[in-house]
Amino acid sequence: MEKHEALANATHDAAHAAAHHGHHEAHELPNLLAILKEHFPDLPGLDFLLQWQNIFFSALAALLISAVAIRAARRKSLIPDSLRNFVEILMEGIAGFVTGILGEKHAPKHIPFLGTLFFYVLFMNWFGMIPFMKAPTSAWSTTAALGLITVVYVQAVGIREQGFAHYLKHIAGNPSTLVGWLLLPLMFCLNIILEIIAVPFSLSLRLFANISSEDRLLLKFAELNTAFNYMPFVFQIFANCLVILFSVIQAFVFMLLSTVYIALLLPHEHEHPEHDEASAHAH
């Protein structure tokens, strides 16, 4: 009971603290830094960390992933131990999924990027649910950074795989008829907006909106717990289950869309003419 009140108080104080900094109002559970600020307001460096808290927790997520993955990767033996086995299952699952979309030829180059993106986003999402942690993906700055990286990566892949001339032609809407050439300026602008400007916006806003909503959800359910004293943790457990699920879905969607963007910019294979014909008919 006391804990819940403390939680509520801390939330309240964190809201005040945040309001002081002018970043945002309290709409998530208090994290380690906010609690420290409440109890030891004069701790050196704390204000700096609070100001950069998203980066602080991103770095924690990055360290966690790197530590586990590198530790597992170092254990080279014919029969893998449990940690290695676990990491292998995750990596192989991602690799299989990406290969299914990009094909055997192109997938191996992009698996590390897409896989890292997935696990990084996933752990940052989950941090919103872990006590004293904060989900850095509930801030648009974090997701915007990821969206920008993705769009740059995708366009770079497009240029490298198709060649710059083909890439330009693709951006110009592959003009082949007179109408196509007449519409070139329009198509060019449209494709620039669609593929270069809209992509990071859609990726980053989707993730940011979903995860910040999850955080609000967690906060509201925690408040419900304090309101109904006879049902401690029931709401919280329910909310946690939802957050576990939605965090996976959001990380997966981020990776899936990035994979699809890459797939759309890969040169079209002409090895299966009947397949191309079928897809042309479908269009």
Binding site: S66, I70, Y120, A145
Partner: peptide, 22 residues
Amino acid sequence: VQILAFLIVFFTLRKLAWKPVL
């Protein structure tokens, strides 16, 4: 800073985790 952070994670994991494991 987030871009830099991700790039560091990406290059580190690509070299030390993804490549050896795959």
